[in-house]
Design a protein around this nucleic acid. Sequence first.
DNA 1: CGTGACCTTGATGAGCGTCAAACCTGGTGG
DNA 2: CCACCAGGTTTGACGCTCATCAAGGTCACG
Lengths: 239, 239
Amino acid sequence: MHATPALATPSNATAVAPFQRRDDLGIEQLREHVVVARRRVAAGQFVHRVGQPFHSLFLVGFGCLKTCELADDGREQVTGFHMRGDLLGVESIGLPHYACDVIALEDSEVWELPYPPMLTACLRVPALQERLTAALAAQIRRDRQWMLTLGTLGAESRVAAFLLDLAERHAQIGLDPHRFVLRMCRVDMANYLAIKHETVSRVLSHLAATGLVDVRRRDVTILDPVALRRVASSESSVH
Amino acid sequence: MHATPALATPSNATAVAPFQRRDDLGIEQLREHVVVARRRVAAGQFVHRVGQPFHSLFLVGFGCLKTCELADDGREQVTGFHMRGDLLGVESIGLPHYACDVIALEDSEVWELPYPPMLTACLRVPALQERLTAALAAQIRRDRQWMLTLGTLGAESRVAAFLLDLAERHAQIGLDPHRFVLRMCRVDMANYLAIKHETVSRVLSHLAATGLVDVRRRDVTILDPVALRRVASSESSVH
DNA sequence: CGTGACCTTGATGAGCGTCAAACCTGGTGG
DNA sequence: CCACCAGGTTTGACGCTCATCAAGGTCACG
């Protein structure tokens, strides 16, 4: 259900993370073969936009970003939020141009992985190749899991599932899974959840009223993970 | 928006297809390196089930199949329908077991591509590797495009978009894009569209009443593609 | 201290889900 | 060959969930 795969964990974080994500690549190994440039991205700035020439994948160093899918007629859909260790740009592999927007929600850092060099590195290091392919497959599974959530659950369950997903990902990068800050505004969250932002507000208020969480604007504390998990998997109106 | 990528077009179809799908791999090239076994699958039978040991990818020779994502609590979500030239099983790469079910909707044939041999073939043939990766990336894009449709459009638009997608895919494999048979029942279609089957029925009846399509149970004729496209991209209640 | 972005809450209603009944249509067996 | 049956499909009536519209509150920042 995660929005993006962790291709690798930035080296300064390996000691902190309680466990590595399965689709971890190993950034140290990668750096032996590819020149990795760090790039700062201010809040609101694009890492890449749809239509720009595809040249690199990006690994999130720190911060938080969102991926945005666009339609010709102006509709847009947030398809993922990304944090440290997540790999960006994989969906554009094989295309001349990036297929979506990636925008920083706060000041962030991404590590630029030039793609042609990565390809040649993959030729020399089969393990690298396998891990990149595995990372792509893992991304498909996450998207599918999210489709399952959106397709089968109602508004309240979606919000609960979202909070639990954030909690899990925070745990994976060594942060407190039960107390964190939402880096995205309600509108982005609502778009991702395919509901309206007013509904998100109401659901959060309700979850707080029933004692499952504490919410003060963007500060979230999960008080009853078990009950929250129950909410996140109970079928909704859309039976 | 297609449900599955075409890794290759079966050789007996290359002459028929008006154009090759971009993520085409070239089955002839592949057969030089991997033993490809044909397998018949009767309607209702599984190509693979969640939990079975992962060993192969599958290329659809003919017929129609669906992919089904399962949750622990029994919820399930159809995440794609597949026809000739589509590649199955990619989402399970890197796992010990298949991550989803694939079920034949009618008597079908799949070509079994044993995965370990494919990996070694990829090592010797870089072009093959690149195309497999590209096929995975294309799958991610299709899933994302569908997430955009589900997240931003109402019931009527979703059905219209679905019919247009089927039309396009039929064109790609050399079938009539404006006159075809729905191989799935209303329930499967509705599940994929994240609405109820009664709603699908009603929408189809309404599209027929306004002269955009003709629908007789599973036989569909698209009468006004332009108007249908307009319906498929007009934002819904979910503004 | 104003100003704008973001968040919350309420009232109302549209869209679609739910429940129920009737209608095919293809397959089975008498 | 026809009667029957089961699964799939259509249609209607009703109600719930969530979108819409509107107003007010909170906070960061110039």
